[in-house]
Simulated assay, not measured.
Amino acid sequence: MNVTIVDYYSGNVASVINSFKKVGNELNDNIKITLSNDLETIKNSDKLVLPGQGSFTNCINSINKINGLKETLDDFVLNKKKPILGICVGMQMFADYGEEDGGCEGFGWVKGSVKKINLTANTNSGFDPMSGISLTLPHMGWNQVDCWPRNEKSEILCRGFNGNGSHFYFVHSYIFKTEDSKNVLMTSYYAEKFTCAVNKENIFGTQFHPEKSGENGLKLIKNFIEI
């Protein structure tokens, strides 16, 4: 199996590479993990991972600067229907539109938009009575995640987490507001309940960072590889 981590110069992806290689080596010697933006390598992959650091707009612009990359991703995901996992902004780019850094159009693979976390969604001051702390942005650190599998593939990704209240590591100020609740795979809470993982057919994404989430993150990576 060939798993390619898409390289579009979005930031330091060393921890993503290392986490996937660790899981791949433990699962099977025939699992090859590659970091690449070579279009033929991406086309011939069995699965893709789309990481993301920085702002929504900058990540979209970085994708568009690599000639043919967006079209190759569209073909891989929409036509060939092969699995992809977006991480953080990598997931947010699946949306129709993102408001961050002036705003721009996303990939349009999963209906919805990316908006800033509303710290006063349930309070006037940003003080969260549930945790007893004043909320700030970015939302950074460990938070509980609840999993809501919708189909056979998402059951595999949620294996070990469904109803478990597992914790993952977050660093973000914007959230993916999906139009269709059927695309919500996992939820968490910070000032407001928010979608922290999406799924539509072969498309998967997490707002949290599995590569920074210890054993739970490695378990999710393993689940994705096994879809």
Rank of each mutant, 00 (worst) to 15 (best):
N44S: 12
D46S: 14
D46W: 00
K47D: 07
L48I: 06
V49I: 15
L50A: 04
L50M: 14
L50H: 03
P51N: 11
P51H: 06
P51D: 12
G52A: 10
S55W: 10
C59D: 03
C59V: 04
N61D: 14
S62D: 12
N64G: 02
K65F: 04
N67M: 10
G68S: 10
G68V: 04
E71M: 05
T72M: 13
F76T: 03
V77I: 14
V77F: 05
L78Y: 07
L78H: 04
K80Y: 08
K81A: 08
K82H: 12
I84P: 01
G86V: 06
C88S: 04
C88A: 00
V89M: 12
V89G: 06
M91T: 01
Q92R: 06
M93K: 07
M93C: 14
D96R: 11
G98E: 02
E100F: 05
E100G: 04
D101W: 01
G102V: 00
G102P: 04
C104K: 02
G108C: 11
W109R: 12
V110L: 08
K111W: 08
G112D: 12
K115L: 15
I117R: 08
N118C: 02
N118T: 00
T120A: 13
A121N: 11
T123K: 00
S125F: 06
G126T: 03
D128W: 13
S131Q: 02
